[in-house]
Simulated assay, not measured.
Amino acid sequence: MDIYEISKPSNSIEQCNVFEGKWIPDEIYPWYNASQCPFAGSGFNCMANGRGDRGYTKWRWKPRNCEIPRFSAREILEKLRGKRVVFAGDSLSRTQWESLICMLMIGVDDKRSVYEVNGKKITKQKTFGCTPGSVPRRSPKRVKSTLRLDQLDDISREWIDSDDLIFNSGHWWTPTKLFEM
């Protein structure tokens, strides 16, 4: 289990296990309205898709023995200034990226200044992130191909100069996603 150092407002550092805690109500949430954020996928906009209650938006994570500093879009934007952050993974990574962009936009005065670097609409890029391989000997007949998880495909070159890489693939390795050999 990872232990993270969290700065307290007094600038002292304490050990904080962010994985032990509970969800608590917090009226300051949500940080953004998905209907007003052009980067939020329409399929994940619960309110626009008819969810009537709003209570699910009013919760935050509270670690057991410490406080996590409140989110500040302007502070995060300053820390990320000039840096390249890459999200690599599946649809879960995609929605996390969309949510982060929507949260950061609240710290930007001119929302039109948030756009894709190449001047076109930000799009999904479908890749496997690993190298196709041959079927191992003595594999069941239903196995038609494999993926080499120890070798990334050419798309990984796009991650090389990132300052921060958020990589997610955990959802695909749960027992219900794997088959028995």
Score class of each variant (00 low, 15 high):
65 N>Q: 09
65 N>I: 02
68 I>F: 07
69 P>N: 08
69 P>F: 02
70 R>D: 13
70 R>V: 11
70 R>A: 12
71 F>H: 08
72 S>A: 05
72 S>G: 07
72 S>Y: 01
74 R>G: 11
75 E>P: 00
75 E>D: 14
75 E>K: 14
78 E>F: 02
80 L>H: 01
80 L>A: 03
80 L>N: 01
82 G>W: 03
82 G>Q: 03
82 G>Y: 04
83 K>N: 03
83 K>F: 02
83 K>S: 10
84 R>S: 06
84 R>M: 07
85 V>N: 05
85 V>F: 05
85 V>H: 05
86 V>N: 01
88 A>L: 13
88 A>N: 06
90 D>H: 11
91 S>L: 13
93 S>L: 10
93 S>I: 08
93 S>V: 06
98 E>G: 08
99 S>C: 13
99 S>K: 09
99 S>A: 15
99 S>N: 15
100 L>Q: 12
102 C>N: 07
103 M>V: 01
104 L>A: 05
104 L>Y: 11
105 M>Q: 11
106 I>K: 13
106 I>F: 01
106 I>H: 04
107 G>S: 10
108 V>M: 07
109 D>L: 10
110 D>N: 15
110 D>M: 04
110 D>F: 06
112 R>S: 15
112 R>Y: 10
113 S>W: 09
113 S>L: 12
113 S>R: 13
115 Y>F: 14
115 Y>D: 01
115 Y>L: 02
116 E>Y: 15
116 E>K: 07
118 N>L: 10
119 G>V: 12
119 G>A: 09
120 K>V: 12
120 K>L: 10
121 K>Q: 14
124 K>A: 12
125 Q>P: 00
126 K>C: 05
126 K>F: 15
129 G>W: 01
129 G>T: 03
130 C>E: 02
130 C>D: 01
131 T>C: 10
132 P>S: 05
132 P>R: 09
133 G>C: 00
133 G>R: 00
134 S>Q: 12
135 V>W: 04
135 V>Q: 09
136 P>H: 04
138 R>G: 04
138 R>Y: 09
139 S>C: 10
139 S>K: 06
140 P>N: 08
141 K>D: 13
141 K>I: 09
141 K>C: 04
144 K>V: 15
144 K>I: 14
144 K>R: 15
145 S>V: 05
147 L>G: 14
148 R>K: 14
149 L>H: 03
150 D>Q: 00
151 Q>T: 12
152 L>K: 12
153 D>C: 07
153 D>K: 04
154 D>F: 07
156 S>M: 05
158 E>V: 03
158 E>W: 02
159 W>C: 07
160 I>L: 13
161 D>R: 08
163 D>R: 00
163 D>M: 00
164 D>W: 11
164 D>P: 00
165 L>H: 04
166 I>A: 00
166 I>W: 01
167 F>S: 02
167 F>Q: 02
167 F>T: 01
168 N>Y: 09
169 S>C: 14
169 S>W: 03
